[in-house]
Simulated scan of single mutants.
Amino acid sequence: MRKIILSIITVFVYPQFYGQTVAALYDQKEYEALIKLEDKADALTGEELYQVGFAFFQLENDDKAISFYDKAIAKGFDNALTHFYKGVALTFLRKYPEALIEVDMALKKEPNNQEYMNQKGLIYKYQGKEDKALDYFEEATRFPNTFGEPYFWVAYIYHGKQDYEKALKLYYVAAQKVPKQNTYYVNTLLFIGQLEYTFTQNYQKSAKAYAEAIALKPKDYNNYPKLIKAYNAAKEYAKADAVFDLLKAAYKNNELPKEFTKYKTVAIDEYEWNKQRLLVYKSLEDPKEALDVSYTINLLNPNGDKVLRKFTVEKTIQIANGNRHVFCEVQEESHLTYPYGWKTDTIPLEDIKKAITQVLEGSLQKTATEK
Rank of each mutant, 00 (worst) to 15 (best):
V173A: 03
K120V: 08
F147H: 08
A174Y: 02
D163H: 06
P97C: 00
K161F: 14
A174V: 02
Y136D: 13
N145M: 05
Y185M: 02
P144V: 01
T146V: 06
Y184R: 06
W153H: 07
G121E: 14
K129L: 15
N112M: 05
G160H: 12
D104W: 04
M117D: 08
E115P: 06
L100W: 01
T141D: 12
A133S: 14
F152C: 01
E115L: 05
L170T: 03
E102R: 05
D104R: 05
V186A: 11
E98S: 03
D135Q: 13
E98L: 03
L107C: 09
Q162D: 15
F152Q: 04
Y116V: 07
D135R: 12
M117T: 14
K166W: 10
E138D: 11
Q162N: 12
Y164M: 04
A174S: 15
V178D: 14
F147Y: 15
K108W: 09
N118K: 06
A140M: 07
E130M: 08
F152S: 03
G160T: 08
N112F: 10
L190Y: 10
L190T: 10
G148Y: 12
Q127G: 06
W153Y: 14
V186R: 05
N145S: 05
K108I: 09
P179Y: 15
Q176S: 14
E98K: 03
H159Q: 10
N112R: 09
I101C: 02
Y116P: 03
E165P: 00
W153K: 06
Y136T: 04
I192N: 09
T188D: 09
A140C: 08
I101S: 05
K132R: 10
N187R: 00
Y151T: 02
E115H: 06
D131N: 13
R94E: 11
T188L: 00
V178T: 14
